[in-house]
């Protein structure tokens, strides 16, 4: 649905994006992660046509953004980091304007505005001036604007930034509902948000893609990690566990009484459950719990960006 091929953006001698290429498939929710200044907003501005790339090509729904801007932009709904709101307008007038910009058939506009307002929780606010709305509602109006014209692609730049936890939760819920059936590309540095909403993650670092991965695959980290709670003496058990085949690292977790809790990081193709059982039964140490552990996105992000 969205394809970036070799996108580079330079501001004088500063390279904001360097040879960035990826494809967002139809119906996919893709999170763009990165530290401040990594190039996330620049990438989104290029995809929406607000910025022109120094090199490379963007296509949206098969339409080249430079050669066929009208067709490409018709498919896009964009909520920038600062919602593009006209304070002097009412919510209804603003959404009507957004619909007209997105070339919605004039006769369909009133019903379309009502529908979007209902979906984004703005029905009671349609007659209010945007300048008088709270931050949370302003963000909702921004999202409603992006939904005008029923775009196939939704692009959101840090959509929950500045919202309080309750507003964030409500906004996320609305977003989750509206993402169904659309290609959604959003940037964030709130990792839990990406974890909650995305199918796939791209991490940008200093303008380059350093990771493009399915979220589940990313969290499993490729290699298996197991948490084991074992009853027994740590002095005996730890050396034995460290010598186990298929185990790369053993980390002791905080103890609970006479129970030893450890995190076993396995080698890439290691699967030590069978040998672990054998070892522990030989040591007469009962295994109370054994469960796989997923890496948090935060761990992965910190690891990758510190390496990158």
């Amino acid at each position: 649905m969205i394809t970036l091929a070799g996108i580079t953006k330079r501001y004088g001698s500063t390279v904001a994006l360097s040879d960035v290429s990826f494809t967002a498939r139809q119906g996919e929710v893709l999170g763009l992660l990165g530290q401040n200044g990594a190039g996330k907003t620049t990438a989104l501005n290029i995809i929406t046509g607000c910025l022109a790339p120094s090199a490379g090509r963007v296509t949206v729904g098969g339409h080249d953004l430079i050669r066929e801007p009208r067709q490409a932009r018709r498919l896009i709904g964009y909520l920038p980091e600062v919602p593009p709101l006209y304070d002097e307008m009412t919510v209804r007038a603003y959404l009507r304007f957004a619909c007209e910009l997105k070339l919605v058939v004039p006769a369909d506009i009133p019903a379309h505005v009502e529908e979007i307002a209902a979906h984004t929780g703005l029905k009671q606010m349609l007659g209010r001036r945007i300048g008088n709305l709270s931050k949370g509602y302003r963000q909702r109006v921004g999202l409603a604007q992006a939904l005008c014209g029923d775009p196939e692609v939704l692009i959101l730049d840090e959509p929950t930034s500045g919202l309080d936890p309750r507003q964030t939760a409500e906004f996320r819920e609305t977003l989750r509902e509206q993402a169904t059936g659309r290609t959604v590309l959003f940037s964030s540095h709130i990792l839990s948000e990406v974890q909650a909403l995305c199918d796939r993650v791209i991490i940008l670092h200093h303008g380059k893609i350093i990771l493009d991965s399915d979220l589940k695959q990313l969290q499993s980290g490729g290699a298996l990690r197991l948490r084991a709670d074992i009853q027994g003496d740590a002095k005996v058990l730890l050396p034995a566990l460290r010598s186990l085949a298929g185990v790369r690292r053993v980390t002791q977790l905080p103890d609970e009484g006479d129970t030893l809790s450890v995190l076993l990081e396995c080698t890439q193709d290691g699967c030590p459950q069978r040998t672990l059982f054998t070892l522990l039964s030989g040591l007469n140490a009962p295994l109370l719990r054994l469960q796989p552990v997923e890496s948090s996105l935060e761990e992965v992000f910190l690891k990758i960006t510190s390496e990158g």
Partner: peptide, 14 residues
Amino acid sequence: RAHTDRLLFSSPVS
């Protein structure tokens, strides 16, 4: 200044 130009530039209007 209000960043509303983003709305115009990303819409299918020349």
